[in-house]
Amino acid sequence: MSEQSTAVAGGEAGTAATTKEAADAQAPVKPKNNRAWFLVLPVVVSVAFTAVIPLMTVVNFSVQDVFSPDDRIFVGLEWFRSVARDPEVRAAFVRTLIFSAQVLLLEIPLGVALAVAMPRRGVWVSVALVLVALPLLIPWNVVGTIWQIFARPDIGLGGWAINNVLGLDFNYTLDSTDAWITVLIMDVWHWTPLVALLAYAGLRSIPQPYFQAAQIDGASAWAVFRHIQLPRLRGVLTIAILLRFMDSFMIYTEPFVVTGGGPGNATSFLSILLSKIAVGQFDLGPAGAFSLLYFLFVQILCYVFFTVLTRSGR
């Protein structure tokens, strides 16, 4: 009887061949059905509602010119062409790419350095972890608000100090460079902790004998970092780079709160421009085409990063 019931259970899709053979040998007549597929249904439905259908709506908009729900024209790839040629989009694209590159160049080394400097044992471990993780616990728009105020030259501590203590002329609402630097430093402040925590976890997982062997070999602290710690951080750093690239390339809330994309277009990143087109101007066709191109580009770049980072390790 129990053999029978295992055979029924074994009829589900994706059962290992060996189990099937065993079931064949034990139960000559094997009941066969595809009812197990019903178990997948909830996932299919929820993914369809949350991802596939909304995305198809975007695809739908991207190939039509919509005047009203009943009045629309199929325009083919026209929106894609016009978005790709739009100088404003191109400028925002370059700006976002530069921003992401700067974010990676600053946050990855800084995060690794922070992780190396964090204590390994003792009471200070938890203190350091909490302190480092603090920025990660703050909601995006609050981070924006904090920095919006902090960097103000009149009432913000940071802005005031730069102007009055360092004696530099700093005003992010008027100067493009100042605005850019403010947004960049804000991102570094907000997200370096993520890199640091990932790297810290990676460092903690290195078995003690590696460090003992290095001691025996007379390796300097730098050699230990270069030849033991860094190579063994490859995995977590791959994840850190992917996460930080995707996230910084899609940055929206913080610059929106701090600068609103200005002054002028100085901090107008792709996502800010996109929301201006989609929500501000309600140009659903161009916004749809823009979204798909944006999505595609993030996918391709992540694929490239991932391939390069994993291949180089072999």
Binding site: P207, P209, Y210, Q212, A213, I216, H227, P231, G313
Partner: peptide, 13 residues
């Protein structure tokens, strides 16, 4: 002193 550990400890790259 030369010491060999339970599992191979190498500078893998």
């Amino acid at each position: 002193i030369a010491q060999v550990f339970q599992f191979p400890v190498l500078y893998e790259e």
